[in-house]
Amino acid sequence: MFRFLSRRQITRLSLDPPKPRPDRAGLDVVLIVKNEERHIAEWARFHLLAGVSRFHVYDNGCTDGTIAELRRTVPPDALSVIPWDQKLRDGSREIHNQVLAYAHAVRNFGPSCRWMTFIDVDEFLVPKRAASLPEALEPLSNCACISLPWHMFGRSGHTEAPAGGVLENYTRRNPDPMSDAKGLRNFKMIVDPCRVVSMKVHTIETLGEGGTCNDRGQRFPMSARDSRAFYSAEAIQLNHYYTRSDAELRAKIARGPNLTTPDAEHLRRVMRKVENIEAGEVEDRSAISFLERIGARGLAGLP
């Protein structure tokens, strides 16, 4: 049933790259969000400290205080909020609302930034050695398309949501970002938006690139980024706090996916992924180490 439905969904969009402005600069983050009031401020503060210039937030029907928290946390000139509560179809085929938001951001906000990335509230971009994400990206200026593998964090033993933030409470992850286990190996990307020609949630094609780079600047065909030779998290690590607590995981499942999927199939896929994440976990304090390195631990509500 699900395979049949997937053939009736539009999950890839092609577009003409926008023209860059002469003064474009910085790293912009694109986010589509729904009801993340509890965690959005920590996520935004972390990425401000990591050097993000602007946040383009697509409001997918928030009914809680998510947007108010963002407005309290992010300076007004660094935040744009776009209403994005919709399910659109081309005839019988549903258009992936997240991909549509990403394509809109590239065309409308891409000309003013040097880099653009597309992540969720449960994903943190962590500079591993540099003092900021822009500094970490400086050696990668010849790469129009950088793929960062997921580092998948589980529940860290929490049944209910603990006091405090995500970073201090969830420090255990699956040890192998390149695992063949279902649902563990995937990527988010940092791109030059003025070279983007095609978008999916986890795959972005850029003009003239012929593939993608890892964070060492090594270029591979897109089809080869699943190989262990591609793996690197030396400059930037993508931490994906997929579950948070068990209670929050159950609420996440209840909200459903970005595309219309049968409930039983959605539950099965999520729980299979969780089992794989929590198999043989290792301790990972990379995000906290970054905050300590820049002298920001304990500041602005972060751990």
Rank of each mutant, 00 (worst) to 15 (best):
S53G: 09
L48M: 14
L49R: 14
P111W: 12
L48D: 09
W84N: 01
G51M: 08
A41T: 15
N97E: 11
L49S: 09
A105G: 06
F109G: 03
L49A: 14
W43F: 07
D77A: 07
R93L: 12
E42N: 15
H47E: 01
H56Q: 00
C62Q: 04
E94H: 08
A68D: 14
R54N: 13
A78V: 04
I82F: 08
G51R: 10
I95K: 13
V74D: 02
G91E: 02
D77N: 11
R54W: 02
G91I: 01
G51D: 09
S53Y: 02
R107C: 00
L79S: 07
I82A: 03
R72Y: 06
C62N: 13
I67N: 10
R107V: 10
V99G: 02
S112H: 15
V74A: 07
T63M: 04
N60C: 03
C113F: 05
G91H: 04
W84L: 01
A44F: 04
L48P: 07
A78N: 07
P76H: 07
T73Q: 13
R54D: 09
V81D: 04
H104F: 06
D64E: 09
N97F: 09
L100S: 11
V106N: 01
L88V: 13
F109S: 13
A68K: 10
R45V: 03
C62F: 01
R89N: 11
R93E: 12
I82Y: 08
A105C: 11
H104G: 00
A105D: 05
L88I: 12
A44E: 04
I82L: 06
F46Q: 00
H56A: 06
L88N: 10
C113N: 03
A105N: 05
L79M: 07
I82V: 15
I82T: 15
Q86T: 05
L70H: 05
A44D: 05
R71C: 11
D90M: 12
L79R: 07
H96S: 10
T63A: 11
R72E: 13
T66P: 05
G65M: 07
V52S: 06
H56P: 00
V57L: 00
D85S: 14
R93I: 08
E94Q: 15
D85V: 12
P83T: 13
S92W: 10
L100D: 07
P111K: 10
F46M: 08
A78C: 14
V74W: 04
G110D: 06
L79Q: 07
D59Y: 00
G51K: 09
E94N: 08
P111L: 12
R107P: 02
R54T: 12
G61A: 06
S92P: 03
Q98V: 06
N60L: 02
D59N: 03
W43A: 02
R93C: 15
Q86F: 11
G61N: 07
R71E: 15
D64G: 09
N60H: 13
N60E: 07
A50M: 02
D90Q: 06
P83G: 15
H56R: 02
R54H: 15
D77T: 09
L70Y: 06
H47R: 04
P111M: 09
N108V: 14
Y102H: 12
R54S: 13
A103M: 11
W43D: 00
G91C: 03
L49N: 05
R107S: 08
V99F: 05
